[in-house]
Amino acid sequence: MAKRKEADQAKRKLRKWPWILGVLIVIGVVVAVTSNSGNDATSPPPADVAEPQSGAVGQPVRDGLFEFTVVGVDYQPSVGGPHFSETAQGQYVLVTVRVRNIGDEPRGLSDADQYLFDSNDRRYAADSVAGMAIPNNEVLYTPISPGNGVEGTLVFDVPVNAKPDRVELHDSTFSGGVSVVLG
């Protein structure tokens, strides 16, 4: 009989653990929800979270593992040389940029991740073919060693009447990007 009592007590103890575990999980969820409830869109960001950078022509800005400096902006109807040239549908906006690798490994810059915005906030993608038509355009797809930099031209085909406002530069497809005002 004593063995049966011990067995019943052991079963009761085992039946309590799922309840205890469930209560602990519920308490953990409540604590997690209440600790994050103050972080809504109206709350100021925590002090250690940096706002996205923006800058102007000639001013270095950083995104991810690249430091960008826009050094000039030019407008052309076409780009290239006698053997390989491209003509814009509207006009080409040529953004000359210096890119420095501030990381620890070689990295390449893709013009597919760079954008130009006009004064009406319309977004334009870089024209890769026109960029390749520019002789010695080192900025595109050239692996940049750590600590080194290259200078080259990003090319955007925009309507003749568009007023370029800013360029958005990205370390990669998934980075936050930095804005550089062109005017």
Rank of each mutant, 00 (worst) to 15 (best):
A126S: 02
I134F: 07
N137T: 13
S175F: 03
P143S: 01
R12G: 07
S54T: 08
N148I: 05
T87N: 05
L65D: 10
G147H: 05
V29T: 07
A41R: 14
Q9T: 09
D127N: 05
Q76V: 15
T87K: 09
I102M: 08
G64Q: 07
E6K: 06
R122P: 01
V71Q: 10
K13Y: 06
K163F: 10
F66W: 11
D171C: 07
V95G: 00
F156W: 14
K16S: 12
V160F: 09
V61P: 14
V71A: 10
D8G: 08
A126E: 04
V139Y: 00
V79Q: 09
V23F: 14
G81D: 10
N136F: 12
T173K: 15
P44W: 06
S78V: 13
I27Y: 07
D113H: 04
S78W: 14
S54Y: 06
D127K: 00
N101I: 05
I27K: 02
R123L: 12
L94H: 03
V95Y: 02
I134Q: 11
P164I: 03
V70S: 00
V180F: 08
Q59K: 02
V155S: 00
T153D: 01
A47L: 11
S175G: 03
A162H: 12
V79P: 02
D104V: 11
A130M: 01
A112R: 13
D165A: 15
V30F: 08
Y124W: 13
S110D: 10
S85W: 15
K13V: 13
Y75C: 02
N136C: 06
V31W: 02
V29G: 08
S172D: 08
I27V: 01
A32S: 03
T142K: 03
W19C: 08
A2F: 15
P77Y: 05
V30G: 10
D111Y: 14
V57W: 00
S35G: 04
A112F: 11
Q76C: 13
R62A: 06
Y124L: 02
T173W: 15
Q114F: 14
N136R: 09
P146D: 09
S175E: 02
G177E: 04
V49M: 12
A112D: 12
S119N: 04
D111A: 13
D118G: 06
V31A: 05
G80E: 06
D111F: 04
V49L: 15
D104G: 14
L21G: 06
D165M: 08
G22Y: 02
P46L: 10
K5E: 10
A41H: 10
Q91R: 15
S43Y: 11
S128P: 10
L65F: 13
I25Y: 12
P164C: 00
D8N: 11
